[in-house]
Write a protein that binds this DNA or RNA. Structure first.
Lengths: 347, 347
DNA sequence: AAAAGATGCGTGTACGTACACGCAATATAC
DNA sequence: GTATATTGCGTGTACGTACACGCATCTTTT
């Protein structure tokens, strides 16, 4: 006997499978006495429903909806999480699961509201959500709660709201970590430069917290040197080179870019760099090029595909496999240098 | 119609489900003409068998065997991969999969041969194997091939043998990476110390290659300083402290321990350390303690639980879910410092 | 006290696949 | 020519669960 099922429970409790089924699903028409008897036998035999058979016999599919920022040629970041989402979706074929991907525009809160409405019309069981616009997301989650729709947060979280699970990275922690890494290279009176590309709408909060994390590290470790700051529009490449030339001098030993560092790297390459440790974010092709050249020293990453995959799997595990799901999955800050970037390509 | 199944194929091909089944499984008793017709319809309808129903209807379970080193109170390393293996096994409940864990003694090749024989007696479909003893493993794999048993390598690989998949880390690469990390902290004429705990039988090859990797880095980056080496029995704690005191001097800026670094850290703590960057391996409680204290600066890790989990899942994906499996999964060298170790605890 | 309703329970069919069995039709044997 | 194999195919049951239906029994209504 491979697996004890309803049948075995029914036999031992001296009732029919139908009765056991009614007990398990709480759909009435069972006397209290037999109800208790059946439940006791379930305990005794350690009965667990067979998920395969459940999904096979189910008449309605489980429906999941994802709501993430769309991507374009100039902002490809959200392509990667989607790939993880789709990988997970492929693994759900045969389980009677329907996955619908909705997108919104990072520059337009209204597009988010629209996607949110569409999502609810699909009457999903669970939603995977990148709550970029806090206010709109709060509103949406209120509606979900009314309708008993569960949700998982992706990339960011919202304070005081408890989702089924959330997959994200703590930007403050990653900035703090960047401080640690830079500190290996600093001397007594070295200076550091922090570069913020301020027009990066999506990541505004992220960028700020990364910056704060770095500063906290140096304040915690009584660093004596100076931390310069440069806030700039990423489109102004010429300006960037000029400003960097102005601001860098012989005491500067480290640069921390709170987002993608390839533009800084490009400028540095012109200027000529020596004894400068450059730390930035994200394993994009542009960044990798400068990592390989040795202009960028460290990239901090968060496995965006794994986040998308994990978020979908959290829904799957909860609704289909019915196993407990971690409330929170803080993605490790992966430290990537020239020598190990290859290993992370597939994440 | 949720999923096109055998029935739809049968209808369209104007045969019975039994015939379709016989065609799909190549168990004869079908005329060539109907055979071709059925296969064409399968193509046309893009038929893919429903894995859930397959497993539900299967009479014999799929059998997997794992063969890994055992663990004891003094060598707990292999406990972690096993946890990953067991997590994967739990996820297979309901799929009619039988998993048997066999162990051998790292100090005794004969115990490996015994486990290997036991494994074959279980007539498994697939085997997850830590091929620590190369010669014995080769012999065993020969037998597996005769019996058409597939295998997945865990932790190490064997040259010129192609398993279904392998999950491991490249020790040379990790040593090379250690060189990069240390280099951030070195000055022109700094010295480095490499510490090898030579009696670590299990990892002998690993340790050697880590050492080689480090040296290769410094040779590739024309490092001018000196690399000292200390080979020592990990049991000789007193001797370790003494030797360290002898060998360390003001020019020493880095220590690379090719395995667990906590014993070195303990000695350093007595001696008093300053301006010394310590890099070691593995996220064990002992190591973490010194990482938190700041005596160890970096731990290089390889997510051993994820390796065990991934290895089992490779078997599962191949035999049960019947989806393609990556031939090789080189685990990233995770760089762990005081600030991000928390995030890796669950891997 | 008979009719109507509610309660407690069993039966049957479906989900998509595997596999044993059985029955024709054809092929081979004697 | 009949008897026996062989080939080609369909049917039936099982896997474990979900859910509709139906039939007794018991309770309430008038």
């Amino acid at each position: 006997m491979q697996h004890i099922g309803i049948k075995e429970v029914a036999t031992k409790a001296k009732v029919s499978v139908g009765t056991v089924d009614r007990v398990i699903h709480n759909r009435g028409r069972v006397s209290e006495s037999t109800r208790e008897k059946v439940l006791r036998v379930c305990e005794d035999l350690n009965y667990h429903p067979n998920v395969l058979a459940q999904r096979l016999a189910a008449d309605k599919p489980v429906v999941f909806v994802t709501i993430t920022p769309g991507f374009s040629s100039d902002n490809t970041y959200w392509k990667i999480p989607l790939e993880g989402i789709q990988k997970a979706a492929r693994e759900m074929t045969g389980y009677k699961v329907k996955v619908e991907n909705l997108f919104f525009n990072l520059a337009d809160p209204v597009s988010f509201r629209k996607a949110a409405l569409d999502a609810i019309l699909l009457e999903p069981d669970g939603i995977l959500l990148a709550p970029v616009f806090k206010r709109e997301a709060r509103e949406f989650i209120r509606k979900c709660k009314e309708r008993k729709i569960l949700f998982v947060f992706l990339d960011t979280i919202i304070e005081n709201i408890e989702p089924l699970s959330s997959f994200y990275q703590d930007p403050f922690e990653s900035g703090y970590l960047a401080g640690r890494l830079l500190s290996f290279h600093l001397r007594r009176k070295s200076e550091i430069l922090v570069v913020n590309f301020t027009l990066d709408i999506e990541n505004n909060i992220h960028l700020g917290n990364r910056d704060k994390g770095l500063r906290q590290f140096f304040s915690d470790n009584n660093f004596r040197g100076k931390i310069e700051e440069l806030n700039i529009n990423p489109a102004d490449e010429l300006l960037l080179t000029k400003k960097l030339e102005d601001i860098l001098h012989h005491k500067t030993r480290g640069i921390f870019v709170t987002s993608s560092a390839h533009k800084v790297a490009k400028s540095l390459e012109k200027t000529g760099k020596s004894g400068l440790m450059v730390v930035g974010y994200d394993l994009t092709p542009d960044n990798v090029r400068y990592l390989k050249k040795g202009v960028i020293d460290v990239l901090l990453c968060q496995k965006p595909a794994a986040q998308g995959y994990g978020g979908m799997m959290a829904l799957f595990n909860h609704f289909v496999r019915k196993i407990p799901v971690r409330k929170e999955q803080i993605m490790p800050v992966d430290i990537i240098v020239k020598e190990n970037y290859r290993d992370y390509r597939d994440f």
